[in-house]
């Protein structure tokens, strides 16, 4: 899922300084699961905005809402239910949601309430870690399911590097060397010989350096 974190309140307050009626809009997708922008976080942020405004002696009306997803047109259209009740939308979705509101509601002012961090997962409660870089050219079948693009500090294709020590990455003692994990895992499943294969030069053309990417599924475009 996409992992995000709420922006500092003063940054949010600065964005909203010219507005009197704000719709704080959560998303039931990834940001709900990572507790950054779901219903509960909407309630908290709305409260903080009201308190911050009170302290500054300003009046602001905060409307709270959460929609199923902010990355699909039909759900963005459901913002119509608050039509005329807000003069700015503060989206608690990831950057995709903010872009979708900007794309599909050309006259709405929209601001991001969270920083979109990475694609990751939670192996223990309250802790998320990056697992995928969305590079568009998966090589996980070569690496035992562990991604060196996202999880190696240098995104090496032939690690480990000289900075790997006792299974840890040189950037921080808390970061496991993913290439050590790859070697250990492939050895455990008796597939280590696949690392001796000479791989073709990796194509990074799918990794976003050529501008925004697009997936088109002809069977779904009716």
């Amino acid at each position: 899922m996409i992992i995000a974190e709420r922006k500092p309140v003063d940054e949010i307050m600065e964005m909203l300084q010219d507005f009197k009626k704000v719709l704080v809009l959560g998303c039931h997708g990834c940001v709900s699961v990572c507790s950054a922008g779901g219903e509960r976080e909407v309630e908290i942020l709305a409260s903080l905005i009201r308190l911050g405004s009170k302290k500054e002696g300003k009046e602001i009306e905060v409307i709270e809402g959460t929609i199923t997803r902010q990355c699909d047109k039909e759900y963005i259209d459901s913002i119509d239910q608050w039509e005329g009740k807000y003069d700015a939308v503060l989206s608690m979705a990831c950057g995709v949601g903010v872009n979708f509101i900007a794309n599909l509601r050309p006259t709405d002012m929209v601001f991001p309430a969270v920083n979109t961090s990475f694609f990751g997962g939670s192996a223990e409660q309250g802790v998320w870690s990056e697992q995928c870089a969305g590079c568009g050219n998966c090589i996980l079948h070569y690496t035992g399911g562990l991604c060196p693009v996202a999880r190696c500090a240098k995104s090496l294709m032939n690690g480990p590097c000289g900075g790997s020590m006792d299974g840890r990455c040189e950037i921080h003692a808390d970061v496991p060397c993913v290439w050590q994990l790859i070697h250990d895992r492939l050895e455990r499943v008796d597939r280590k010989e696949q690392l001796t294969k000479v791989a073709p030069i990796r194509s990074w053309t799918t990794a976003g350096h050529g501008g925004p990417r697009k997936v088109v599924r002809d069977d779904l475009t009716v």
């Binding site: 509960r40 409260s47 308190l51 009170k54």
Partner: peptide
Amino acid sequence: STLLKAFE
């Protein structure tokens, strides 16, 4: 939110 609402 309950604690924040108390402040509100």
